[in-house]
Amino acid sequence: MMKLNRVAAIVLILLAVFSTGVLAQEAKGNALVLQTDFGLKDGAVSAMKGVAIGVDADLRIFDLTHEIPAYNIWEASYRLMQTASYWPAGTVFVSVVDPGVGTDRKSVVVKTKTGHYFVTPDNGTLTLIEESMGISEVREIDENINRLPGSSDSYTFHGRDVYAYTGARLAAKAITFEQIGPVVNREIVKIGYQKAVMQGDAVLGNIPILDIQYGNVWTNIDKKLIDALNIKKNDLLKVEIYNKGNRVYQGTIPYVNSFGDVPDGKPLAYANSLMQLSFALNMDSFSAVHKVYSGPEWTVKVQKVSK
C-alpha cells in the first residue's frame, strides 16, 4: 500500500509540473515576426525591436527580412506569402513597406482563416496573403489606443510608433484582436497581376519574384498546371517572357529536376521549393544574362514543344 501511495504521489507531482509548464508556455504569447524595407545600416529595426521589448521583455522576436527593395510593396506581399504558412497559428507578422507613411492610407491588422495576424499599412501588402490564407477579419488600428505613448507628433516612423507597438501588444496578449480598433467593412487594397491560367495548349502566369541570390526566375505556375500540360522530365518548353506586354525573352528550355542536370551556363526549367515553375542558368544568373526581373508587370507564357 505504501508503494502505491508513493507512486500516486509521484504521478500527481509530475502532472502538476507538466500543467505548470503548459500554462507557462501559453502565457509567453505568440511569436512576433518583422519585415521591412529599412535595411540594417541604421537603427530603425533596432528601434522597432526596442519598442516591442518594452511591451514585454519575454517576447520572442524574429526577422523575416529587412532587405525588401525600397518601396516595393509587391515584394513585401510575396515574402509574407512565401513564409507565413511555415509559422504556427497565432504568429503576428509586422510588415512595414510604407511609401505612403503619414498620408491617409489605413493602418490595419488582419486575422487570416489560418489564425495568423498581419500588422501593416493597407497598401497592397496583403494581396497574396488573402489568396493563400484567406482573410477572416480586418480591423483598422485605433491610434488613440494602440500607439507608442509620446509619439503622437511623429508622422514618418509608424513602423516603430504604430506597427511594432501594436504587433507586440497583440503577440504578448496585452490586447485582443478585438481591441485593435473597428472592423473594416471593405475589401483590402490589392495589386493586380497575371494569375496562372491555362490558355489553349499554353499556360500564362506571372514572375512574382527572383531567387535573388542566384538570379533564378520564379513563376506562379504551380505543379498542377505543369501536370496539366503533361510536362515530364527532359521535355522541352517554349518560354516567352514579357514586361508590360513587350517580349523580353523567348527560348526553348528543358524541364529537369535540378541545376546539375544541364551543363554549366545552360538554361533549365524546374519546380522550385514552392513547387512552382522556375527558370535558371546552371552556375549563372538567368535574370542578369537575359534582363528578366520580377513584379506584377512581368508575365510568362509556357508551351510544351511537340516531339
Rank of each mutant, 00 (worst) to 15 (best):
V96Q: 08
V51Y: 06
F93T: 04
D37F: 06
K111P: 05
Y86T: 08
L80M: 14
I73R: 10
V55L: 03
N5E: 13
F62C: 02
Q25Y: 13
M275K: 12
A202R: 14
I141G: 05
G215H: 11
W87S: 10
A280S: 14
G124A: 15
T252D: 03
Y155Q: 04
I231V: 15
I180A: 06
A76S: 15
M48R: 09
I191W: 11
R247S: 09
I188Y: 12
M198G: 10
V110Q: 02
V203C: 05
I73Q: 12
V300G: 01
I53Q: 07
F118N: 02
I191L: 12
V256H: 03
V239Y: 09
L32V: 03
Y193T: 04
T252Q: 08
A8P: 04
V292K: 05
V197E: 14
L170Q: 01
F286I: 09
K28Q: 05
I207T: 13
A196I: 04
F177W: 01
Q199K: 15
V108F: 00
Y255D: 01
E131C: 03
V138D: 02
V256C: 07
E137Q: 15
I141Y: 00
Y293S: 13
F38L: 11
G260H: 14
K195D: 05
A16V: 12
R6F: 04
I253K: 11
R147E: 01
V197W: 01
L40T: 11
A269S: 13
L34E: 04
R186E: 14
V183Y: 05
V197Q: 14
Y78N: 14
L229C: 09
N185E: 14
E75K: 14
L268T: 10
R6I: 10
E131G: 02
A271E: 02
R147K: 08
F259V: 11
P263W: 12
N144G: 14
